[in-house]
Simulated scan of single mutants.
Amino acid sequence: MLISVKSVHNSLFLTPYSARFWVSFALAATSIGTFSLSKAQALNFKFNAAPDIDPIALAGFEAAGNLWSSVLKDNVTVNINVGFQPLEEGVLGQTQSQTVDIAYSRVKAALSNDRTSQSDFTAVSNLPQDNYLTFIGTEEDGFLELDPDDPGRISRDNTTLSVNTANAKALGLITNQNGLDGEITFNSTFDFDFDRADGINSGKFDFIGIAAHEIGHALGFVSGVDLVDIASFPNGPFAPFDLDNLATFSPLDLYRYSEDSVATADTLGKPVLDLTADPADQYFSIDGGRTNLALLSTGFFNGDGYQASHWKDNSLLGTLASIGLMDPAGAPGERLQLTELDLQAFDAIGWDRVPETVPEPSTIAGSLCAGLVIARFLKRRRG
């Protein structure tokens, strides 16, 4: 059952904590210009532009939308407000997504009905078969516990998911194609390179890449572990806050595992997710945790220092190559790239892929952050 519509704002700051983190905002539909992308692919974007936006930037959003339309074929329209304003230090851009609360049982059924690839069939066959989630979670006191620890203590965070409206459209769970799905704001204090044809200027940031990454968050690459992170001790700024009665986790969280959760699953005889805000490794898996496809970030406050709504940052992996477009940080001159792992994740949460299509490196880009993109060189400089 559709419970509510709300707005979620994921934020990651290099400066001291701001009270705006994880605050719900009413999205103001102050769109002056509407830029609609209509093309052969069914996925369509409508960018509602702030009055002072540069046409070159609007064309950059078009290019980022074209990237997603070239690899995803769902017959939906995604509506996003776009604009520029000064943001906090180290933040390149931020995304605020509209979400709906939907019973896990309905999401599971929709994912089953939406299977179009072998990965889909594998992912759905390994979803929790109960109509509730069993997971290792971080309690508000900071301790890790099995939730629920018995079937009589099931709460809303076990039974109901928070689903981005764009993702819900792709799954056929909502039908309002005109509803606003998100708002992307770029930091007007940074220099961006809007032309990727000749590479990215060493002193500028890849605008199309950042826009594509932020759109990816609006499409559903988000994690409720970020909410757990801020609600729990020892470092969560809202701790202690009990999340039991909230729809906390996302469809992407259905594929979040760890060695500990798999070991617990072997004991219980059913899938156990890892939804902790903790430094220990968590990974993306579509076969019940047996195969670690890619590491995930684990939380800004209590985890590895990056929002959980991302892949693990390549700087923490000791490599120059990022896992994919949804890496949490980037550097000037860096050109981020959509990868097979990115597409496998979007496939798993209910988007339909153009078969076996991965854009060539010359056609892609990345951004950073589920709500905010971080400048990696600033984070390193600040220690």
Rank of each mutant, 00 (worst) to 15 (best):
N292C: 04
G289I: 01
I53D: 00
A263E: 15
P355T: 14
P359R: 04
G199E: 12
S38V: 04
D198N: 15
G65D: 03
N126F: 15
V107C: 09
Y306I: 01
Q96F: 05
K169Y: 03
R353K: 15
I56H: 07
N44G: 00
A40H: 09
L368A: 14
F194C: 05
W68H: 11
G182I: 00
L133R: 07
R106T: 05
I136Y: 11
F143W: 13
E360W: 02
D242C: 01
S125T: 13
I200C: 09
T189C: 02
L295D: 12
T248C: 10
N201S: 15
V222Y: 07
A265S: 15
T175I: 01
L295H: 01
N66S: 05
A168C: 04
D141I: 10
A265F: 09
N81L: 13
P237N: 08
N167Y: 02
H213C: 05
N113L: 12
I349Q: 02
R196F: 05
D206I: 06
A50L: 09
S24M: 00
S297K: 00
A218Q: 08
D260Y: 06
A109N: 15
I32V: 05
A265Q: 07
A294L: 01
G137Q: 10
A57Y: 12
T122R: 09
V100L: 06
P86D: 06
E356W: 14
V71D: 11
L144H: 13
N113V: 02
G65V: 04
G152I: 04
E356T: 14
V5P: 00
P240H: 04
K108C: 08
D52Q: 10
Q98W: 02
V100K: 01
D141W: 11
Q177T: 08
I200T: 03
D266T: 12
S367P: 02
A294H: 00
D157Y: 12
L254V: 09
S202L: 13
L133E: 05
K73Y: 05
Y17D: 07
S119H: 13
K270L: 07
